[in-house]
Amino acid sequence: MTPLGRRAFLTRVTLGLSGAIAALVGIPIVGYLIAPLFRTLPVDFVEVGKVADFAVGQTKLVSVRDPSPLAWAGQTADTALWVRRRQDSGPLMFQVFNVNCTHLGCPVNWQASAEIFLCPCHGGVYYADGTVAGGPPPRPLFEREWQVAGDSLRVRQAPLPTSRG
């Protein structure tokens, strides 16, 4: 083994110190930047309206506000959902759909008279129960968990749905 020369030693020390500086600053910055990715959403159910607001057989757009939005979020703290009331009561009473098309996320539009959801981007079509009727969507509309508490309909918060679920 050849002894480490003075210059080679100093080279390693300098490179090592530079790396240490990068790590000292880099670790907190990277941690700060990727933290939002690992923040779990509160599993809150949020009220979207009174049960009586939804007539059986109808599909209606509701908006739900993020329970703890950033102060400057403005309108982006709102999310729209399609609520379909199927029955008077029971476990099949409601279907709550994300507005996002399962193809690429554009908002689908309910055509009340034709009873279909139409996506304005690439023409995805869904039936009233969210199943695919035509176009590129790979799967039915994403649904949200819901519960009836007293006289109000509550919906569970969820992240932006992707086709991988």
Partner: peptide
């Protein structure tokens, strides 16, 4: 999100969180 394996992670990186919002 269509990317293999890291798709969901990438999607949430793009919107800086779970949903498009304040961040």
């Amino acid at each position: 999100a269509q990317a293999p394996v890291i798709g969901d992670w990438l999607a949430h990186l793009v919107v800086a969180g779970a949903n498009v919002g304040g961040a």
